[in-house]
Simulated assay, not measured.
Amino acid sequence: MAQSRVLVLVGSLRTASVNRQLAETAVHVAPEGADVVVFDGLGSIPFYNEDIDTPDAPIDSVVALRSAAADADALLLVTPEYNGTIPAVLKNAIDWLSRPYGQGAISGKPVAVISSSISANGAKWAQDDVRKSVGVAGGKVLEDVALTVGATGQKFGELHPRENAEVAGQIAVVVKDLVAAA
């Protein structure tokens, strides 16, 4: 079996965020033959502006994001919910990856979404918005491959999510199914 590469984008920039930890859990539970990599540069990417998206003046952080996505067989997006919707940093990454129109680095690639929040809602609204945005951007959103994790404070406390067998198992299924779609 050939090695499958999954790029993980995290919608929270906070180093110790639960969403970052869920992404780390995805790396930890990846099946054999899958290389799951968390992209760490979303905070340095400028807001999308077509005036600065030119081939004669490449932006290093954008080149790194687009290259990582182009090299991936699939994408896993992990998102919190900010004010009832998708965090700006994740939306911005999707915008950059959607260009050039019809030929973006995510065009046609399988995409799965994991969302989480301290509320019982599990950031479901953000997940819906991420799925919509990445689908419009050209990604092939896997309709049956998703996970919402609610009540994260109660579920994890001071523990890393990979220490919660139920959640780690659910993430393992998402990653396995995403790799199978790639």
Rank of each mutant, 00 (worst) to 15 (best):
A2H: 11
D144M: 07
S17A: 14
V113E: 02
G108F: 09
R131F: 01
L22S: 05
V167T: 15
A72D: 09
V29Y: 06
L142Q: 13
V89T: 10
R66Q: 07
V179Y: 00
R162D: 14
A57R: 15
E24C: 04
L178A: 11
A68E: 00
S107C: 11
F39T: 00
L147R: 06
L75E: 08
K176H: 11
L147N: 10
A168S: 13
A30Q: 07
R131H: 06
F39D: 00
T85Y: 08
S44K: 11
D129E: 15
N121I: 14
A146W: 01
D71Y: 03
G102E: 06
A72W: 00
A120G: 12
E81S: 08
A30C: 08
F47H: 15
F156R: 01
S17V: 11
E166I: 13
A72Q: 04
A182F: 15
S17T: 15
P46S: 11
T25P: 04
I86E: 04
V8Y: 05
L75C: 10
R20K: 15
D144R: 14
D53F: 10
N49W: 11
A181F: 12
K124P: 02
K176N: 13
N92P: 01
G139H: 03
F47S: 14
D73C: 13
S12D: 04
A57C: 14
S12L: 05
A72T: 08
A172V: 10
Q21M: 15
A30Y: 03
L90N: 04
A68P: 03
V136E: 05
P161H: 06
V149C: 07
G153R: 06
A74P: 09
K155R: 15
L147M: 13
L9K: 00
H28E: 14
I106L: 12
A120L: 15
N92Q: 13
G11R: 02
V167P: 00
T79L: 02
L75D: 03
V6T: 13
I86L: 15
L178K: 06
D95A: 12
D56I: 13
R5P: 07
V149T: 06
W125A: 07
A181V: 11
R99Y: 12
R131N: 05
A74S: 14
L42N: 02
F156A: 04
A180Q: 10
T152M: 09
V36W: 03
S116C: 12
A64N: 12
A72G: 07
D73Y: 01
V111Q: 09
K140N: 10
T15A: 15
M1L: 08
D56F: 13
S17E: 09
E143D: 14
S12Y: 04
D60G: 09
R162C: 15
S115Q: 02
V38S: 09
L76P: 05
W96T: 01
G150H: 04
P80D: 01
A70T: 14
A2V: 13
S133Y: 03
V179M: 07
L42Q: 05
L75Y: 09
G138V: 03
N164S: 10
D144K: 13
R162Q: 13
A120H: 05
A70Y: 01
W125S: 10
K176Y: 04
G157Q: 02
E24D: 15
S133K: 01
W96V: 02
D129H: 14
V173T: 12
G138I: 01
A34R: 10
S17I: 14
A69Y: 06
I94Y: 02
V175E: 01
P110N: 09
T85V: 11
Q170W: 02
K124N: 08
D95W: 08
A30W: 05
